[in-house]
């Protein structure tokens, strides 16, 4: 029981700071965070606008904040950046057009690979299960074996 409580308190101390950060947040700032986390910092290596310290990301964050405070919807703000930077601005590619290949290509590859592996395993299993044919012994060989056995007996 004591161990259970110890584990519970350990979990509580780990989770509570994370929760506190989002509970203290203004609703508008939470929306800024959600939008900025989805947008790529255009001059960084795979970092979001929210996480980056670059000047461009900071100014983009400021623009998002201004638009949120002006009452623009999340979709409208995302579209504002999309209209200017294209698909590249989204950290997660949209599920449209050629991007579908990115989303479902690996799954299709995995499926095809899995099927191929299954077929190969089946084939190998069948091969090993097959009974090997007995070696045929011709008459000469039989006579020779019989003769040699006879010699041993003597």
């Amino acid at each position: 029981m004591g161990r259970f409580f110890l584990l519970f308190f350990l979990l509580l101390t780990t989770i509570s700071p994370l929760k506190a950060a989002s509970l203290d947040e203004e609703p508008s700032e939470a929306m800024v965070r959600v939008i900025a986390k989805d947008l790529r910092c255009a001059v960084c290596q795979n970092q979001s606008v929210y996480e980056s310290n670059s000047d461009l990301a900071k100014d983009m964050l400021e623009i998002i904040r201004e638009k949120v405070n002006a009452g623009d919807s999340e979709a409208a703000i995302r579209d504002y950046f999309f209209q200017r930077y294209g698909d590249y601005i989204y950290l997660e590619p949209t599920k449209k057009g050629m991007n579908l290949l990115l989303w479902f290509g690996p799954l299709a590859g995995l499926l095809i690979g899995g099927l191929a592996l299954m077929a190969a395993f089946k084939k190998w299993h069948k091969k090993s299960a097959e009974v090997k044919p007995k070696a045929e012994i011709n008459e000469d060989m039989q006579d020779r074996i019989a003769k040699e056995l006879k010699d041993i007996e003597v």
Binding site: V43, L56, D59, M60, E62, I63, R84, G86
Partner: peptide, 13 residues
């Protein structure tokens, strides 16, 4: 200075 025009034009660098 705040890159408002630059961002509005989709400028990277």
């Amino acid at each position: 200075p705040k890159q408002k025009v630059a961002i509005d034009w989709g400028v990277y660098g």
